[in-house]
């Protein structure tokens, strides 16, 4: 086992070196930093293949890529957060002196000492690290949860509830209902036909109705109620299938993009 691992490692390293040399050679005309550039492109291809190797099984190359990825991305977010939120957004609003110190453009509005409150709350949060002061970190968490709960409460009450109710208000007999006689003399299955439009309105209404019944928790799903609930879950499943199929087609194009990188930017087989 150990032996095969070593051999594999040696092969991978040799291929890596070979690719580096070749890539640097092909780049030498174009840029001054060709050795570094060659390394970076090769490394990038190496990481791509390492991640793809996960499809076969978990392996050392994948583990390497994964662990490196975690470290680099966490630090990347931390740096971006520091520079964009703290330095560029918070500091200029706190005080003139601090923005001068941080060489930041002060904000057009007035300085606001209220911005010291989130700083204090942030420091309270850091108290988690001390074994005794941990309880105080609940305050900022409570602040965040309370604020966002209130925010979400009205937002969803409006958009997911009231607006959705009023969206169901469609005339079930079509907008241009001209009587039974007219309806039967114009039976047409084309998308613009009155029959299709009316049928769609009915399906939508009944679908919503049965779907809501399915989500009814405090009543036993038996008899007519149970039948409606069953129709509800069927409609849900049809929808999930359609959404699944739609996404499948979209994802295939992502893979095509990655393969293009390997064959064009790295191996330069296709142009």
């Amino acid at each position: 086992m150990k032996k095969t691992t070593f051999i594999l490692m040696a092969i991978v390293s040799a291929l890596f070196l070979l690719s580096w040399i070749l890539k640097a050679g092909s780049l030498s005309g174009e840029t001054d930093n060709y050795i570094l550039q060659g390394f970076l492109v090769t490394f990038s291809a190496f990481l791509t293949l390492s991640v793809l190797s996960f499809l076969y099984a978990d392996n050392p190359l994948y583990k390497f890529a994964e662990h490196l990825f975690v470290g680099v991305s966490a630090a990347f977010w931390m740096c971006m957060g520091f520079w964009t939120t703290i330095v560029q957004n918070l500091i200029p609003r706190l005080s003139d002196g601090l923005s001068k110190f941080f060489e930041q453009q002060p904000q057009p509005g007035d300085y606001n000492f209220f911005f010291f409150i989130p700083v204090i709350l942030g420091i309270m949060l850091l108290m988690r690290l001390s074994p005794k002061g941990g309880w105080i970190s609940r305050w900022p968490l409570a602040f965040i949860i309370g604020t966002t709960a209130g925010l979400n409460f009205v937002r969803y009450l409006r958009s997911d509830f009231i607006k959705q109710i009023s969206n169901t208000f469609v005339p079930l007999l079509g907008t241009e209902w001209q009587g039974i006689g007219h309806f039967f003399s114009n039976l047409d299955l084309s998308a613009s036909g009155q029959l299709v439009a009316i049928a769609a309105n009915w399906v939508i209404f009944l679908g919503v109705f049965c779907g809501l019944i399915y989500f009814y928790f405090s009543k036993e799903h038996k008899g007519a109620f149970g039948a409606a609930s069953k129709v509800g879950i069927w409609v849900l499943m049809l929808t999930f299938g359609a959404s699944f199929g739609y996404t499948v087609m979209g994802r295939i194009s992502l893979l095509v993009g990655r393969i293009t990188f390997l064959f064009r930017d790295w191996l330069e087989i296709i142009s």
Binding site: G146, A149, Y156, D160, N167, I204, G207, C210, L238
Partner: peptide, 30 residues
Amino acid sequence: WLMNVPNLAAQRAIVMGVGLGIVATALKVI
């Protein structure tokens, strides 16, 4: 038809249910 009719109905039912769940949970939290 699948994308426009049953899909719309199911989405609406789910969205209303989720909306109620969110509203209820938020209220319980508050």
